[in-house]
Design a protein around this nucleic acid. Structure first.
Lengths: 110, 110
DNA sequence: TTCGTAGTTCGCAAAATTACGAACATTAAT
DNA sequence: ATTAATGTTCGTAATTTTGCGAACTACGAA
């Protein structure tokens, strides 16, 4: 008696939304830009680029890590952060596919 | 005596984050996918694709509209929604540029 | 005029996000 | 054993997001 229409979101849409959400804050975009442009990417360097408290920076880094876009490793006494290449490319493909496949039809409003 | 370091985010980073944030929910990704694939795109059709109440759908549509990714026009008694082509392409370029320019260096951790 | 259709807006609640300072953990140097 | 340096975690507060049902608006048809 499953009356409910099965209307869950697809895995792909969930994943793309997760990547997008992680990128949905200027501080996190700035972090990603910075990380991608740097060889050494310590917490302190990142903090220095941003107009926010270190606790907040730490939180943003955690979100990017949870989304899989970056990774961190301890390099005592510092913490070195980097882009996670595999997921970075995965994200790139997700966005590319999204924008490529989703060409608005010529018959649509505009 | 402006002691504050000027550490605001760039316009571009703000804009990319705004697009990303708008895409940061599976319902909104689903909506964008659907709109891009359809010729006719009425509110009711969109609502039908989603597992959420119409009030919530309306809210998501408003957010996409505020971000500039879609537009709506009244076609009494319905409302026809569409991708906003100009901003759609703009968003595409933003994401492309982001992922292209931000290639992680080979000297980085992974 | 009354009714039905199609959406939006309102009011509310629950949860998540953003932000901060203070406290804490870890390790190295004195 | 202290102290300093580097980040993380905790506790808290303010705001935003997500979601719903109910009420509302606008319009056309009966």
């Amino acid at each position: 008696m499953d009356n409910l229409k099965n209307k869950d979101y697809t895995i792909d849409n969930e994943q793309l939304a997760r990547f997008a959400k992680a990128m949905g804050h200027p501080a996190r975009i700035t972090i990603l830009n910075f990380l991608a442009s740097m060889d050494s990417c310590y917490f302190g360097d990142i903090h220095n680029e941003l107009p926010i408290a270190k606790a907040t920076v730490s939180q943003h880094l955690k979100e990017l890590k949870d989304a899989g876009l970056i990774q961190g490793e301890i390099e005592t006494p510092k913490v070195k952060y980097c882009i996670n290449r595999d997921n970075w490319e995965k994200a790139q493909v997700y966005f590319e596919t999204f924008f490529t496949d989703c060409k608005p039809k010529t018959t649509c409003c505009n």
